[in-house]
């Protein structure tokens, strides 16, 4: 997995390339926490290049969403493929996150 970080105004966009699983979840967690530490409050994670996420990856997203909320910020997600959408529906995490089907819609939603 690799991460690419860009900015759109004050929104930090993190592109995840590869699977988000137990072996690399801390990398994403630390990156988002570093951005939050640096003052970012609106963060979008784009999963256009992610095939699947395991339970530990889902757990990290839950944890990050809580942390951003505590800071008065917001973590949103975009571009879940059908498999990822199924995972979020199975675990009902689709009710916890604001999920957009495109990056543009996600950016507009903030």
């Amino acid at each position: 997995m690799s991460l690419q970080v860009t900015k759109h105004g004050d929104i930090v966009i993190i592109d995840v390339d590869g699977q988000l699983i137990v072996g690399n979840r801390q990398e994403l967690k630390q990156r988002v926490l570093d951005e939050a530490e640096g003052g970012a409050r609106r963060i979008l994670i784009d999963f256009a290049k992610t095939a699947y996420i395991d339970s530990s990856g889902l757990g990290v997203l839950v944890s990050l969403a809580k942390r951003l909320r505590e800071l008065g910020g917001d973590l949103r997600l975009a571009n879940l493929n059908d498999d990822l959408q199924t995972l979020f529906e199975l675990t009902k995490l689709d009710s916890l996150f604001q999920i957009a089907d495109t990056r543009e819609r996600a950016l507009e939603s903030f």
């Binding site: 395991d54 757990g59 809580k66 675990t91 009902k92 995490l93 009710s95």
Partner: peptide, 17 residues
């Protein structure tokens, strides 16, 4: 993990999945 009290837990989804 889908109950309201468990939804925001970081762990507990592996066996369920």
């Amino acid at each position: 993990p889908t109950t309201p009290e468990n939804l925001e837990r970081e762990t507990g989804r592996g066996l369920f999945l």
